[in-house]
Amino acid sequence: MHLISWLFPLSALLLAPLLSGIINRVKAYFAGRKGPSILQLYYDLFKLMHKSSVYSRSTSLVIRLAPAVILTCLVLACLILPWGGFPAPVSFAGDFILLIYLLGLARFATVLAALDTGSAFEGMGASREVQFSAVAEPSLLLGFLVLIMHTGSLGLAGIASGITIVDWQIAAPLLVLVAFAWFFIMLAENSRMPVDDPNTHLELTMIHEVMVLDYSSADFALIQYGAALKLWIFGGLLVNLIIPVKFDVVWLQAVTFLGGMFLISLLIGITESITARLKLLNVPKVLVSAGAFSLIALIIKLVESYQ
């Protein structure tokens, strides 16, 4: 465990709120507006930290504890996420399963806190959240299986450093399939268009935003920050897959990785600007299709191995 490897999760914690700033800037550009500052989320978090809290009378300890648990899960997931050629502080065989399940625990806490308020709207959001993630998780894991087969490595570190330019030359179709699948799963898991509209103001149509309606002050700051980290984690997985240039020099790797993250947030911003929301009923279908993408990659990989 190198000391230097702690640098990456630390900078993830610092830089994660930037992503939503970039996305919002891109969206503003498409809409012909000037848009908020890139640092807006930092300002929001700072302001929220200095507010007094309001809790619903229906709630219990669950909603007070949930933000801490959610944020912890996401921070720990950051500790597992590698940066290209550099392994994460904690890396072991099968660590991606723990990563996915930590996200699962965060989701469980979010959903329970939503139900704690007794609000019908929050129940609705929670119900959608568990439905989509139940379909998204197998798809995500199938993508990992393809990458394990491809790199022969069981851990995230090996998978991340194992995908190089050569792999993109010989197996581009498979990697593109997985990347597409993951990109859509990222949009769904982070409540982005075309699955969920982060800017909507109608409770009935929300998924993630409706579940956090009853948070205030520091709790809400933790939730917002957690959401930023979650986007960072999914973005990081995708960057490790689609940016095949891997270095073992710290600053070079850091620059490529951050460049990749910038690219991902640009992509998300563009996607959000040019797509309309899917019908809610169609979301599982699309998520299953994302799984189908990975499965096709897996089948082709298997058939290829006979050559």
Binding site: P173, L174, V176, S289, F293, I296, E304
Partner: peptide
């Protein structure tokens, strides 16, 4: 080559869906 195969497979899924 495989890219074409993948595209053809995907096109079939599109027709199915």
């Amino acid at each position: 080559m495989n890219a074409l195969a993948v595209l053809l497979i995907l096109s079939c899924l599109l027709i199915l869906g």
